[in-house]
Design a protein around this nucleic acid. Structure first.
Lengths: 194, 194, 194, 194
DNA sequence: GATGAATGAGGATTCATTCAT
DNA sequence: AATGAATGAATCCTCATTCAT
């Protein structure tokens, strides 16, 4: 008889949103953003098409929230790595380890993000967010290479970042056969304390 | 007025196909595969929608031919680099230079290819081709690193390849501000004749 | 803390219904019946969507009640005008004045009613009510023109009514720039005591 | 074997567009703009839903073209009436006759236009067109009342126009039982040569 | 009385593809 | 070879209405 409390509604909303986001993320990652229909998401999430729109204003908005979540995780990961130590060599090792571990256990996210990063029509929406995030990431990461006393720290950072990107991308393409650990060790070999 | 010979017809057909492929490629690269309609391609190429289907069985087939072309160019590039010298250090330098130059002057192709490579729905179609090509490329490139006398030539090749991929991808994302030459030099620095 | 009496419940219920009706009426008038969603009405009225259905069986029923209210006001207006005098010239003057004043101070109602009156899909529902009301109105108004001793009182009534409708409609379309008073005076000029 | 000529395509296009416009106009008039779905129009016109969009960019664009057509007819009617004579009394008589005859034989158009004129959401689109047309109509019609030597020609024009609107609207509501001819004669009675 | 989550039918629109000429 | 009209399935999205609490 008594109506549901605000907290109950809050709880329901939260759970539904998370379910939808999770389902959508996996589908987007597996089949591509454009090739995943709202119908499919709803079906897979076990809800009605209409309910989607109770939680997300549009397919694009849903994607937006998923991306934001990934960006925030990325930021958290970076911050955590930097805070774990003051020594640049350790920082880089931790950052590299964290990144690779995170990728390994969250392939979905990265499959999705890379697929989006290269789709021109989606880029328009992601680009501002990504650019901002990237700038912040560079500013935070650059000190590592500066403290290492390298000659051209920015270039070193860029090469490190390109290599990490390349490795991750190839891992995503190839799968578990990819010698991720070997690659990681070879990368870290380069930035060893002299 | 003279009736066209079979060769002339072939020639016309070939040129039309090239025009369409070129147009489609640019549109795909600029706007994304899914966001580019057959109508738009036909319009841009100055032909009718119907004629498109005279040349290509489907939108997917058109995409397929574009991809194949890129793959062949990649193979040609690799072969050329390898044939230019017997010395592994020179070979790698030439290969690296060729790759980077080719990317710089054919951004369209690579934007498209990378965008496709990460779209799961397109991957299904590309993957067999790409896998085969990749295997062939590894077989051809591996000797370079072997001849260099490196400890683990395959891993070195994979890291080289990942780094090149990462650099190219970042260049495509960032554009002319990206220090492509710097990156190239830093990469080659690593594989210097001892 | 005293339990509410039946009358108090009735009173609360009545006030809630009035609030909803008023809100709905303004939204319908401003944005159109089809373009106004139940959600919007509920939100604007500060209640839940579900509660709406506690008061009104459907969107159509809500509309129906709004229309009925307007019809009743029209009837009241007409009766009041007729009762104010026995002299037909005075009666017509009062009726004309009342009508115009009422329109001026209740634009919402009339905007809505005219918009509805011309929407074929709504007409089906309104028509019986309107027809009945119209017949009653004619029966009540006709004596005015008969008492004036005009040759063809019914036709005179119809022309009067058409003119009033036209004036009101143009006023609703044009707004305060419309010379409503001038029009009124010109109309009354025609039905002056000889 | 030979492909269709440009003229043939032109002809087909023209016929299809007209069919769609005609069908849509009748449906809009009978059932209301919002209550008429593209599906229904296509079905009634005997074509596929998709074809609609080959000819009209959207439902709204289709409506727009129908409205423009009506506006042009109105302008033509007015011009023709004015050109038929120099005598204002004759001009008004011809205009009145023309208007009423046109309404009688084109109920659809006027049902649609009046229904649209009062739907707030459609108004946004129609208003600029209608306003412009109205201003032009007033400028053309005003001289009639001026030449008649009436005291306040603009007001007379407005009352005439309101009356005509009212008569037409009531005719549309009531149908053939409405004494259209009587009304017309009574109106013209007022503007008789002294 | 009261809430808002959930439904699902229906609507506008897009687009790869076919086909008569 | 060439055209573009025509199709219809699929897509995103809206919204009146129901219902468990």
């Amino acid at each position: 008889m008594s109506p549901k409390t605000k907290e109950q509604f809050e709880e329901i909303r939260h759970r539904s949103k998370e379910t939808i986001k999770q389902t959508a993320m996996e589908l987007f990652a597996h089949r591509g953003y454009h090739s995943t229909s709202i119908s499919k998401i709803a079906e897979e999430a076990g809800i009605s098409k209409g309910l989607m729109y109770n939680y997300f204003a549009s397919k694009e908005a849903l994607l937006g929230e998923i991306i934001m979540e990934a960006v925030h995780i990325g930021q958290y990961l970076l911050n955590q790595s930097l805070e774990a130590s003051d020594d640049p060599y350790e920082q880089l090792e931790i950052l590299t380890n964290n990144s690779i571990n995170w990728i390994k256990s969250n392939e979905h996210y990265w499959k999705l993000l890379t697929s989006l990063a290269f789709q021109p029509d989606v880029q328009k929406m992601m680009l501002p967010i990504m650019k901002e995030h990237e700038t912040a990431a560079i500013q935070k990461t650059l000190p590592i290479f500066e403290k290492m006393g390298l000659e051209r720290p920015l270039q070193e950072l860029m090469l490190y970042s390109a290599t990490m990107d390349g490795v991750m991308i190839q891992y995503l393409q190839i799968g578990d056969e990819y010698p991720l650990e070997d690659m990681k060790n070879m990368i870290l070999e380069r930035y060893k304390r002299p």
